[in-house]
Write a protein that binds this DNA or RNA. Structure first.
Lengths: 201, 201
DNA sequence: ACTTTTGTTAACCATTTGGTTAAACTAAAA
DNA sequence: TTTTAGTTTAACCAAATGGTTAACAAAAGT
């Protein structure tokens, strides 16, 4: 517990919480102020406007999540290793911040032009390496023929989707939170197993 | 083109459009009124409040999408057929209304207790039949051992995710809308192929 | 010591927003 | 032709909301 807790940090913390749970449109500056335990005017002292504050939060979140996920793709691991490591790391990561994916997807959909480019304007994720790697494995006859983009979409989809659909899944299955967590824990092995089983020869 | 176009219908049409694109929190009654080409007071004449109107829209949407998707699971098709039909039907369906899934997931997450139960309060989707079917196929040794819930999550994830992540995917890959559509068209065959390839013996 | 800068607050302001009211209009019934 | 019921509008209202101002406290220079 390092207790710096400067005012700006408290604001960012509060803003992150409120923005993530309520979204840009649903968040209220007053709520953020309350959550941070400060006056509302102080928000505008540190961050000129709601948009500025949101932008700060959004970029911080997006740039802490996306690079970590693409770093694995850019590494020197084998394809199967990448699939395994990605699933495990990513699901682990999201389990600690389950509301991030929907938040990002949502705001990205609502304001594509504003954010999409700014998110990875400088550090556009380089998936070409994995794509080449997949094509190569196919060419060598190590795995069955598969469109790289579909494969990557499948991987990402299977890791992320359960979290954004959690309320729906719980509505259908009646799963408790604990059961859901256990299911996601299993999933760290299940997803790569499922994928590899599908493409291996 | 049946041109009844009663005022109420125009309102519902406009509200659906605005709510889906902006979400409950982001939608403005005035926008809906403008979109419907009527006075704002008329909205309240037909639907007492914003919440009432939203509820109407949300339930209409959810109850037209979800039952259609579960009907396939409850049918008498073989497991492989179900996987194939579901993928094809569902992707087709979402291609015609690409913003629906994120809208539903989003509002379902923001107001779980309010909607989750009301959506399928009366017609809770019965996935037990497919679950039993999957277990049976495993027991008979027709497919490899697989946890039914994971399998169903995988199927749903692979069908839905690309649409909710479209801006992200386009940001990464630079895909045009036409290319994206083509990719989704392929996907109607690719998803079941991928899944069946994984579980078949 | 005092002056300048930085941090913080209460009170305030303008606009937006969901919602209401009363009056006007329309069309069909009496 | 007058009622009457439903439909539509302009004008209005109160609350909420993003943002500002002026005063004040606390550090930081000098």
């Amino acid at each position: 517990m390092s207790e710096e807790h400067t005012t700006e940090a408290r604001i960012l913390e509060a803003a992150k919480k409120v923005f993530i749970t309520r979204g840009m449109a649903g968040a209220r500056m007053q709520d953020i102020a309350n959550e941070a335990g400060i006056n509302k005017a102080l928000l505008h002292y540190y961050f000129r406007s709601k948009e500025k504050l949101f932008e700060t939060i959004f970029r911080e979140i997006a740039q802490r999540f996306i690079p970590r996920m693409t770093a694995i793709f850019e590494s020197d691991l084998t394809l199967f290793e990448k699939i395994e490591v990605f699933s495990s790391e990513y699901i682990d990561n999201v389990m600690k911040n389950p509301y991030i994916p929907l938040f990002v997807l949502n705001e990205l959909n609502k304001q594509p032009d504003t954010f999409v480019k700014q998110v990875w304007g400088d550090k556009k994720p380089n998936i070409e390496k994995v794509v080449a790697q997949i094509n190569e494995e196919v060419a060598r006859g190590n795995i069955k023929p598969v469109h790289p983009l579909h494969l990557l979409m499948n991987l990402l989809a299977m890791c992320v989707f359960p979290f954004v659909a959690k309320p729906m899944l719980q509505g259908v299955t009646g799963l408790t939170n604990e059961q859901f967590t256990m299911l996601m824990e299993q999933r760290k092995k299940e997803v790569p197993r499922f994928i590899i089983e599908s493409i291996k020869k």
